[in-house]
Design a binder for these strands. Structure first.
Lengths: 244, 244
DNA sequence: CGTGCGGCCTCACGCTGCGTGAGGGTCAAG
DNA sequence: CTTGACCCTCACGCAGCGTGAGGCCGCACG
């Protein structure tokens, strides 16, 4: 009449392991219909059906807790759980794709830069990580678009120009020169020009960059040579330029 | 001279927690430069730098073990680890996108079918799950393309026609009619027609479907009303049709 | 000089979804 | 009676920490 199956039979029919069935029982997901005299688990058709549902939901990425909620409460939670699961997965995919993008960019750099040492590579990775933390995705895209617009050649020029300007500004600061003096104004104009080359005139990006320098003074100093004092001095000098 | 930082200072500067730093130490990732008399962990600039690297690599999704390998062994493993990580991530993205696709299809059905009860929904989910297990991705795409080509209206017609043909075949089997008789031949022709509507004449899909019926007789019987005996009978009858 | 509060320390369990034994009964066949 | 093949119940292990528990520093305040 009521056919009974042992754990291993059930396991074979569902593609699960015996251990998993034990686990599901412990998790309150599926209790055997009965036990034999020796304590063997015995399952019936109803349990098999329920298990099919469990397997299906698990294949959709639901957690055991979610599955229990869905099956126990029946209808109400299922639709909601489905929606939540979709939302979760969408976010996960987006995150992973961003991550993948970053990894691929790094791998690309590595392939282009021929034999690059680990230290340099890690520093580069660190830079992108910090950027990732301080700029929004839109801002990062804007920066990337800006870089594409400028072209690799111009970017190299800018990168060569920065140390010079920074050194000049540092020297002016060391000699305690008036930020309003003609010499410092000239430096500030170059500074502002290079900065705009990066920000593209986007006030938000400028703000985020300042925040980044404030949040990571040590790292930024190590990478750019700009410490908070120098930044303040240069900012003041640029501010004194007015709309000139 | 050599500035020393306490755990919580390091934690603040890196955005990690004190517990995480303890964990990294236990994992052999980052040992404090020294300890105070009271046993307090004391970190230096070098540790801070190393930790930046660790954070960066972690942000790229590397496991602590991988990170340790990368940082300890320096250059050699980093490139390889990067490539492996990219590969892993690509696979993960593909898997999750497939999953997302399935979930969205189900959600779509649910939205279309208005108020569908949980039982029916779970059965639908089960069907897609089993299909997923028995057909390759290419086959599933081919089936989907086939469905699009036929159109929703034709599919509904086919779905209405199947039970009728199955019932007829079942009746013929029950009466032990000769599979070669005119009546059964007529049934077999309709059966074959409906089947081709699904397979699109693809022998691989037909084979996989037979395998599915063999592997999941109970489920398939519950869903289609076709049991192994009936399937054998029908297959014989169809075979007897020849190239007719 | 005590005391209170914030850090710091070292265990150690918890979470997810089982895998993988350990140690020991059960059942049908030979 | 023995031998496999199954079954049982613990219980640890995995990754990466979170979150206490219980107790020792260290600095400031009264």
């Amino acid at each position: 009449m009521s056919t009974r199956y042992t754990v291993s039979q059930i396991a074979r029919r569902t593609g699960l392991t015996v251990r998993a069935l034990h686990h599901y029982e412990a998790a309150g997901l599926l209790r055997p219909a009965s036990r034999s005299d020796a304590g063997y688990r015995l399952y019936g058709e109803a349990e098999l059906l329920r298990l099919q549902h469990i397997v299906s939901l698990k294949a959709l990425g639901f957690s055991l807790a979610d599955i229990r909620a869905c099956i126990d409460a029946d209808a109400p939670s299922l639709g909601g759980a489905l929606a939540r699961q979709i939302e979760r997965l969408r976010e996960a995919v987006v995150r992973q794709q961003e991550l993948l993008g970053r990894l691929e960019r790094i791998a690309h750099q590595l392939a282009a830069g021929a034999t690059i040492d680990a230290e340099t590579l890690l520093n580069g990775i660190e830079a992108t990580t910090i950027m990732q933390n301080h700029f929004s995705n839109e801002q990062l895209q804007a920066i990337k678009a800006r870089g594409d617009a400028l072209g690799a050649e111009r970017i190299r020029e800018v990168e060569r120009a920065w140390p010079e300007v920074i050194a000049g500004m540092q020297a002016a600061l060391a000699l305690d020169k008036d930020p309003a003096s003609a010499e410092v104004r000239a430096l500030a104009r170059r500074w502002r020009g290079l900065l705009r080359e990066f920000t593209g005139g986007d006030a938000g990006i400028l703000q985020s960059m300042n925040a980044m320098f404030r949040a990571e003074p040590a790292v930024m100093q190590a990478r750019t040579g700009i410490d908070p004092v120098l930044l303040a001095y240069a900012s003041k000098a640029v501010g004194l330029l007015g709309e000139d």
